[in-house]
């Protein structure tokens, strides 16, 4: 039992979390995924617990560099576009954000399917689904905001009932519900099962897209018509756009990596807490 006793180098349970949150500032909403057993107990905290894996840290550094370079290229190096003026600079962030948002949902949906299938049921898959959905919500929110900023000068309105916009907005609400469901405390396996079942039902996203398309097409042509305004992406603009895609994808990998790590630590913490409590009871019985 001495292994669990706090020596100088081990930290209290509560002390590990702020350190990890500090390491990835964009993951501010900390979701309690389960009951925290014995807040006063001490856990063995090794160096590998506090610090992320080297690959994750390199990804983080590359992501920050990539976003910084996108900002510099997008704001200072690339020229104005013929029909869009300075507005075109949103192009370097908005499509990459939307791409990451849908990528995140794809990963979350696939992991949930794998979790529901008994032969691939694994805690790791569930953690990945949760981490990916969290990153997805952040990027969907950013997509909607940047899209609105684009829409106001381009179409004269902040919002249009366009299929893509409507689908994205519904997806945003759906995943807020999903994350709310994940936050409800309970037995980890039950929570995971419930979450996976609810996520699989989000197959309805394509149906939403097509039905909104038909719904709108009865009234007027689709609102977003980039092609109609002849936006040619070439030269430095194309490179900046490509860099935007790469760096936002890196940001996604980085965020998911950290949220995954945090979820794993929480699982370990709760199982250690259980072991600790069992050992204490045994000791009581022995004396």
């Amino acid at each position: 039992m001495t292994a669990f006793a706090g020596t100088g180098s081990s930290g209290a349970v509560g002390a590990t979390d702020p350190a990890q949150v500090g390491a990835s500032p964009a993951t501010a909403p900390v979701l309690p995924t389960g009951p925290v057993p014995g807040a006063g107990t001490l856990l063995p905290v090794s160096r590998s617990h506090v610090r992320a894996a080297p690959a994750l840290r390199v990804t983080g550094a590359l992501a920050v560099l990539g976003v910084a370079a996108t900002v510099w290229l997008g704001l200072f190096v690339t020229p104005d576009a013929v029909n869009f003026g300075n507005l075109v600079r949103l192009l370097y962030v908005h499509p990459p954000m939307a791409w990451v948002a849908f990528l995140a949902y794809g990963v979350a949906g696939l992991s949930s399917l794998l979790y529901l299938w008994p032969r691939t049921r694994d805690r790791r898959v569930d953690r990945l689904a949760g981490a990916s959905a969290e990153a997805g919500v952040v990027f969907t929110g950013l997509t909607l905001v940047t899209g609105s900023i684009w829409g106001r000068p381009t179409w004269g309105v902040w919002w249009a009932w366009d299929p893509l916009l409507t689908t994205t907005a519904l997806l945003f609400v759906l995943y807020l519900g999903y994350l709310a469901l994940r936050r409800v405390p309970g037995d980890p396996e039950t929570v995971a099962k419930r979450a996976a079942a609810s996520l699989v039902a989000f197959l309805d996203v394509p149906i939403v897209y097509f039905s909104v398309t038909w719904w709108r097409s009865l009234h007027q042509p689709p609102t977003i018509d980039l092609a109609g305004r002849h936006l040619y992406v070439h030269g430095s603009m194309a490179w900046t756009l490509l860099l935007g895609f790469v760096s936002f994808t890196l940001v996604y990998v980085w965020l998911v990596g950290h949220r995954y790590r945090l979820a794993r630590l929480r699982d370990e913490e709760s199982s250690h807490g259980l072991e600790l409590a069992l050992a204490e009871r045994r000791q009581e019985g022995a004396t």
Binding site: V173, L181, V184, V208
Partner: peptide, 25 residues
């Protein structure tokens, strides 16, 4: 979704949040 949220203390608030957006189509 009733089965997903049943037995939870927050089921009254969670069910509409999950059910209504899915029912949009």
């Amino acid at each position: 979704y009733g089965a997903v949220s049943s037995g939870l203390r927050v089921r009254e608030t969670l069910l509409p949040l999950l059910f209504l957006p899915i029912a949009a189509p």
